[in-house]
Design a protein around this nucleic acid. Structure first.
Length: 541
RNA sequence: GCGCCCGUAGCUCAACAGGAUAGAGCAGUGGAUUUCUAAUCCACUGGUUGGGGGUUCAAGUCCCUCCGGGCGCGCCA
């Protein structure tokens, strides 16, 4: 039995690349992808089109030669190699697909792992909220994306860590403290005018009560309040299965050497100028639209200034790349931040990605949210309405760039319309089949996999084969939504297969054993895929 | 006014360095179950990819322009 290469897709790519080199002395990158239709085979590449101008002979002639050569080299794993209208298509043998099942079931925790990350050390910062109130829905989306990305990238060979930055310093903290003080007085029967820049919101009343009960001293108020809210935010995220490797406070950054370091480097490199008593950073040297203030006329640093210091701090910790996931209202911030890090000597080290906005739908209507009035839907509230699994899945169903309509009623539904149930049910059904098999003394067996010859079985195995490619794509594009989409496709095929065919038939023990082996592979892959997006794989539903 | 994102079927969305007949789900219509979970499956209907122009063997994808929706443009964070 020929052993299949660890990464089939890359293996095919290398074979063709080598063939091109030896046969035509053309050195080029070859990329295979899933064929749009099974009739075209399993993998296809359009390199012939791309090379058209460089080819020494007509495209079909070259295609024929390559086809022949590649087929020779792939005899042990492929049935057909052909060129059709310029595409090179490869159809793998059933044997190869069977071997993939073996690979999955022999080592479920390794299947799909790739090394595209090459050990690159990544810091993923997401959510990073002000400690002035509960987390909202956009934060929830960023949390889904960020935490899933961390899981996916680590599976793809990166070394990714997650980080939460708390803006627990500056003017806003003062306003926050004033707001709590107002509540304290009110609770003590003293009515005052609410501070003009204060934070509305009943949750501050609870904090005021705690302050009174615990007898917190005045000078310790800022820290007590920001820590309390930060803790609440982190607890909510834990309920969402988001756990951080690092939590950093702005207060810590302000006390550190990094603000001074930023100032010194920018000054030495002559990226600073003074105007109206303030210090400006010439971010325009790096493509920003206007210079940015870093030290105000009154001598205090801007948020941007401390954020630069914070990013410098992260870089000093040794990361190869920083990734920030920000809300849609921050895209104007990207240019200046990138400019800042370039000026500090780290061009290209920061990648900022934007998680677009979220609208919540209930009873077919959008829930109105107004930040100004302090009316917004919190992650806590959402988690009271829908399950964590549904929420995480829904937040990942769209590309990051697209606005997301989150239909709360749909997320609560049980049934096919709700993709998260559809997908989780695939896992529960697999488990149920395995259980049912045991009751009839039929267990998954791999010695007769050639009995798996239905078209549906081939489609299913083929889909399992694409899992490593999916993980790799998700990691490289930083698009976790590849995973939910993959799962939905797999579920379509699986449920269809189940519906049409009897998996367990005590009269056909060999066939049943082979089919259960396939079911087991599905279960293993589904479980892993769900883990990568932080969704549970239930044994029963 | 400038910048970023979006515009694809009635609705919500896919479409992987530009590639094969633009695909799914929901909704609608019609069907399937002596069952291993019907919490399911099958079939049909549904498209000028916002409009126009350009580049290319090939454009939903790239360029220009116009229209529409969202967000941002502080010595706020």
């Amino acid at each position: 039995m020929a052993k299949i290469p660890r990464n089939l897709k890359h293996y095919l790519e290398n074979i063709v690349k080598e063939t091109l080199k030896t046969a035509f002395n053309i050195d080029t990158e070859v990329i295979f992808e899933e064929t749009p239709k099974p009739e075209f085979g399993d993998y296809s590449s359009n390199f012939l089109f791309r090379l058209k101008k460089e080819l020494p002979q007509p495209i079909q002639t070259v295609g024929d030669i390559i086809t022949l050569e590649v087929l020779k080299k792939l005899q042990h794993i492929a049935d057909e190699v052909s060129t059709q209208t310029g595409f090179l298509n490869i159809k793998l043998s059933n044997k190869t697909l069977h071997n993939i099942l073996l690979e999955i079931n022999n080592n479920p925790d390794e299947y799909g792992k790739t090394n595209v990350g090459n050990g690159k050390y990544i810091n993923l910062e997401f959510v990073s909220a002000n400690p002035t109130g509960p987390l909202n829905i956009v934060s929830a989306r960023a949390a889904s994306i960020g935490d899933s990305l961390k899981r996916i990238m680590n599976y793809a060979g990166y070394k990714a860590e997650s980080e939460f930055y708390s803006n627990n310093a500056g003017q806003q903290v003062k306003h926050l403290v004033d707001s709590v003080k107002w509540w304290i007085k009110k609770l003590q029967g003293i009515n005052e005018v609410f501070p003009p820049d204060g934070y509305r919101g009943e949750y501050l009343k609870d904090i005021a009560k705690m302050v009174i009960e615990k007898g917190i001293e005045e000078e310790k108020l800022p820290k007590f309040i920001t820590d309390t809210i930060l803790n609440e935010q982190l607890e909510t995220l834990k309920a969402f299965d988001v756990h951080y490797d690092h939590v950093t406070g702005e207060d810590f950054i302000r006390e550190s050497k990094f603000p001074g370091l930023v100032l010194r480097v920018l000054k030495d490199e002559k990226f600073l100028f003074f105007e109206d008593g303030a210090t400006f950073f010439r971010s325009t040297d790096f493509g920003d639209t206007e210079p940015r203030v870093i030290i105000r006329r009154d001598g205090t640093g801007t948020y941007f200034f401390y954020d630069l210091a914070y990013h410098l701090y992260k870089l000093h910790r040794g990361y190869d790349e920083l990734i920030d996931i920000l809300g849609p209202d921050h895209h104007g911030y990207i240019k200046r931040m990138e400019a800042g890090l370039s000026a500090l000597g780290y061009p290209g080290k920061l990648k900022i990605i934007i998680a677009q906005q979220v609208s919540l739908l209930k009873n077919g209507e959008k829930i109105k949210m107004s930040k100004r009035r302090g009316e917004y839907y919190t992650l806590r509230e959402l988690l009271r309405e829908v399950k964590k699994d549904a929420a995480r899945f829904f937040f990942l169903m769209r590309t990051r760039d697209a606005h997301l309509d989150f239909d709360i009623d749909l997320a609560k539904k049980i049934g096919k319309e709700n993709p998260v149930y559809y997908v989780q049910y695939m896992h529960a059904r697999s488990n149920s089949l395995l259980k049912h098999g045991r009751e009839h003394s039929i267990i998954p067996k791999c010695n007769n996999l050639r009995l798996l010859r239905l078209p549906e079985e081939r489609l299913l195995m083929r889909r399992l084969m694409y899992f490593p490619d999916t993980v790799e794509r998700a990691a490289q594009r930083m698009e976790p939504h590849e995973i939910p989409r993959y799962l939905i496709k797999l579920a379509d095929i699986f449920h269809n297969y189940y519906q049409k065919n009897r998996i367990i038939d005590p009269k056909k023990p060999e066939l049943s054993g082979a089919r259960l082996y396939l079911v087991l592979a599905v279960k293993n892959v589904v479980k892993k895929a769900l883990y990568l997006i932080g969704v549970n794989a239930p044994e029963e539903m």
